[in-house]
Design a protein around this nucleic acid. Structure first.
Length: 181
DNA sequence: AAATTGATTCAT
DNA sequence: TGAATCAATTTT
């Protein structure tokens, strides 16, 4: 379940952050999922075994990281949308010169991959293998309050309420400062 | 509100 | 082979 990822720690090398915002994408009955139209070279990792990283490139300049959750052949993944930085802050600042405040470091799906240095080279990486470069660990922390809303930035399937985030965490991505049509 | 940017995908 | 798409971010 996607919500189980909230509160866990995503780590790569010296940099790590607690997951505070996620979105779920499920296979062939979710029109917002990359796996909706079946496997392609890009999305084949989604159809693979769980516990792996699905990294894709979008908008011509951004990487986004997902955790594959479904059983093999079932294209289920959870997009990690925001982290609360907990380690390797200096490294994050170096990787993200655009960040002005601490919450700018990882408050968005493409920001956190940049902050941790995750890119296409990590697509398909095993998150639970011994000595894995990128890992998700559970240190026992549990979020206080979890909110559940519609997903963000989708053309299709945007109405499905499959986004979860830790209420009150300043690192959760801001959906909109002002009103939107 | 708009520019940016290029891999991926779907249609010819 | 070409056009449209795109799970964003930054800057104006």
């Amino acid at each position: 379940m996607a919500v189980d990822l909230l509160g866990k720690v995503l780590r790569r090398g010296a940099t790590a952050g607690r997951i505070v915002e996620v979105e779920a994408y499920r296979g062939t009955d979710d029109p917002g999922s990359h796996g909706f139209r079946g496997p392609t070279p890009r999305t084949e990792v989604m159809f693979g075994p769980p516990g792996h990283l699905y990294v894709y490139f979008t908008y011509g300049m951004h990487w986004c990281a997902n955790v594959v959750c479904g059983t093999a052949g079932h294209s289920e993944a959870v997009l990690i949308r925001a982290l609360h930085p907990v380690a390797g802050l200096e490294e994050m600042w170096l990787r993200r010169p655009a960040a002005r405040r601490r919450r700018d470091l990882c408050s968005g799906p493409a920001k956190l991959t940049e902050a941790l240095g995750i890119d296409g080279a990590h697509d398909g990486a095993d998150l639970v293998a011994p000595g894995a470069e990128v890992t998700v660990t559970d240190d026992g922390h549990r979020p206080d309050a979890v909110a559940n809303t519609a997903r963000i930035g989708l053309r299709n399937g945007a109405e499905l309420p499959w986004r979860w985030y830790v209420e009150g965490d300043e690192n959760v991505s801001r959906t909109r400062p002002g009103p939107r049509p």
